[in-house]
Computed example of a mutant assay.
Amino acid sequence: MKIKLIAFLLFFNCINAFASEVDTLMVESKSMNKFIPNIVILPDNYTTQQNGFSVVYLLHGAGGDYTDWLTKAPELRAYADTYNMIIVCPDGGSTSWYLDSPVDPNIKYETYISKELIDNIDKKYNTLKKSSARAITGLSMGGHGAFYLSFRHQDIWGAAGSMSGGLDFRPFPNNWDLHKRLGNYSEHKNNWEENTVMNMVYLLKGDNLKLILDCGFDDFFYDGNKRFHEKLLERNIPHDYIERPGKHNWNYWPNSLKYQLLFFNDFFESSNSD
């Protein structure tokens, strides 16, 4: 962990020499009784623009942390400038699944992201404090987390995305500490059924939440993404869906990010044009 932190600091100092501004914001989570780090990327004109900025929340996957996106997709800084938006990369714990766990009282990442982090970002930075100026997306566990949080908090986010998301984790009862977050499937089936985003489509109404999702053909989550897309079609929920060659890796996700940030920028411009 120490070696990884040193490597990130060296990388951070290097990229900080040009474009945008990068903050590391420590946020106190009273719900979990700890401080949590988050990267905040500000566009070049942040200090000169008086109007508030739209914000994209970008979630990491299982086994990752808040540094993943910026270290593995450093073009994030250029995107913040190009689209004149703030990008926030929270730390969601290694395998939190961005839930308030029904079996572990120490895991309350839904509360953290949707309440504590949002409040801190809106207090510290010049943001547009409305759902039409907020979007959330992520990869793998973070893709599930982005849909999970946005479906349950449509008053907070107006658009959401998923990249190779674990949109139905029920076929994977022994993976990614899911049993620690939800209990064993055989004993706590209801927890699994109630917390998989596959079963939350009923929360959506029309196009009140703008959605984009994509997944590679060779991804182990491809089947779940395809079924999720078909479920949205059955319920007449508008969305953008992309499937293309690709696996569950960092060769795929930076390309996904490119399309999703364009999607969010279009949403922000159309929703906040006045």
Results as ranks from 00 to 15, higher is better:
2 K>A: 13
4 K>N: 12
4 K>M: 14
5 L>I: 15
6 I>T: 13
8 F>M: 10
11 F>D: 07
12 F>S: 09
12 F>T: 05
13 N>H: 11
13 N>S: 14
16 N>Q: 04
20 S>G: 15
22 V>F: 00
23 D>R: 06
24 T>L: 08
26 M>S: 15
27 V>L: 06
29 S>N: 05
30 K>Q: 05
31 S>P: 02
32 M>S: 03
33 N>S: 11
39 I>R: 01
41 I>V: 15
46 Y>V: 08
52 G>E: 04
53 F>K: 07
55 V>P: 09
55 V>R: 02
56 V>T: 13
58 L>Y: 03
58 L>I: 07
61 G>N: 08
61 G>Q: 06
61 G>W: 09
61 G>K: 02
62 A>S: 15
62 A>G: 08
67 T>G: 06
74 P>G: 10
76 L>A: 02
79 Y>W: 14
79 Y>H: 11
81 D>N: 15
83 Y>C: 08
88 V>A: 03
93 G>A: 02
94 S>N: 12
98 Y>S: 08
99 L>H: 13
100 D>W: 10
101 S>P: 04
104 D>L: 09
104 D>E: 15
112 Y>S: 01
113 I>W: 02
115 K>E: 13
119 D>C: 03
121 I>D: 09
126 N>L: 11
126 N>Y: 02
127 T>F: 08
127 T>N: 03
129 K>F: 01
130 K>F: 05
132 S>G: 04
133 A>W: 10
134 R>F: 12
135 A>D: 03
135 A>S: 15
136 I>G: 07
138 G>P: 03
138 G>E: 11
142 G>F: 05
143 G>Y: 05
144 H>L: 04
146 A>K: 04
148 Y>D: 09
151 F>E: 11
152 R>M: 10
154 Q>Y: 01
155 D>S: 12
156 I>E: 09
156 I>P: 07
156 I>H: 02
157 W>Q: 10
162 S>W: 03
162 S>V: 02
165 G>S: 06
167 L>N: 08
176 W>I: 01
182 L>W: 01
186 S>N: 13
187 E>K: 09
187 E>Y: 12
191 N>M: 05
192 W>V: 13
192 W>A: 00
193 E>I: 08
194 E>K: 14
198 M>K: 07
201 V>N: 10
202 Y>G: 11
207 D>W: 01
207 D>M: 01
208 N>P: 00
211 L>V: 07
211 L>K: 05
216 G>C: 02
217 F>Y: 14
219 D>W: 09
220 F>G: 04
220 F>M: 09
221 F>T: 07
222 Y>C: 13
224 G>H: 06
228 F>H: 07
228 F>L: 13
229 H>S: 13
229 H>G: 00
230 E>Y: 07
234 E>F: 10
235 R>Q: 15
236 N>H: 15
238 P>M: 11
239 H>T: 10
239 H>S: 12
242 I>W: 12
244 R>C: 02
246 G>P: 03
247 K>Y: 02
247 K>R: 14
249 N>D: 15
250 W>R: 09
251 N>T: 08
252 Y>T: 15
253 W>F: 06
256 S>M: 01
257 L>R: 09
257 L>V: 04
259 Y>K: 11
261 L>N: 03
265 N>K: 06
270 S>H: 12
273 S>T: 12
274 D>M: 05
